[in-house]
Design a protein around this nucleic acid. Structure first.
Lengths: 122, 122
DNA sequence: CTATTTGTTAGAGTGCACTCTAAGTCAACT
DNA sequence: AGTTGACTTAGAGTGCACTCTAACAAATAG
């Protein structure tokens, strides 16, 4: 079992030290133990959770929803069903967003083609 | 040629009247003429532009960039090349975002599958 | 031993995109 | 003529997700 300081975790996760402290304050990470000097000592669990949090955030899950997931996670195995539902519902939202973006990208693509063809749009 | 009031345009575009006024203040629409009573009279051009603005916004283009596009549009045909570049560069950004979201969605999907299979994630 | 770096906290500030409020005007209905 | 409702403006407020500041403590480098 290895431990990491905030700078290492920042590098590993792509988050800033500031953001890591903010995520902790917002309960987006399991409790982070401190060393004798009061500094954060992250473990492998934290790293794994933070990477999953990144996946949730990168797909547009709001902070308060990520927090809800983490609270369920911390509560224990009796929350499996609820966590599963949360993730499945998020997945549907993301899928809808994806197809919306794709549809709008097609509109932009048509405009680009009209600029390229006639040099002027209608 | 038909004219529309702010309520009709709100319905057609899915934007609120508030947002339409805000977009106008931010120069995201060509100039909107007023009637004798000072009320907005939108034409077909406005409707078409607003729908395209919606496509740009729905794909994550920031307000200031949409505004830049509109200013070029208003400036005239000598800006065709610049508008084309702006749209093409936006298209690339959107494509990258799409693949990032898809990659992260796969991570979430794996987690869902692990919840479904063993009822418990590692 | 001193200076620098890296961390700590609570809390304030930032940027974005709306979203709403207040105070007022104007048209249409009763 | 009065009331309702939709509109007008400038500007303030909101929610989100950071991002930064100030003041301080501790570890390391010279």
């Amino acid at each position: 079992m290895s431990y990491y300081d905030i700078t290492q975790v920042a590098e590993e996760t792509g988050l800033t030290a500031h953001t890591l402290r903010y995520y902790e304050k917002e309960s987006l990470v399991p409790e982070v133990p401190r060393d004798s000097g009061g500094r954060r000592r992250y473990g492998d669990l934290h790293l794994r959770v933070l990477k999953f949090v990144n996946a949730l955030r990168a797909t547009g899950m709001p902070i308060r929803e990520v927090k809800r997931y983490l609270v369920l996670y911390e509560t224990g195995e009796q929350t499996f069903d609820e966590r599963l539902e949360l993730l499945k519902s998020h997945r549907e939202i993301v899928k809808e967003q994806l197809s919306s973006v794709k549809a709008n990208l097609r509109i932009i693509d048509l405009k680009i083609k009209s600029y390229e063809k006639i040099g002027a749009p209608k």
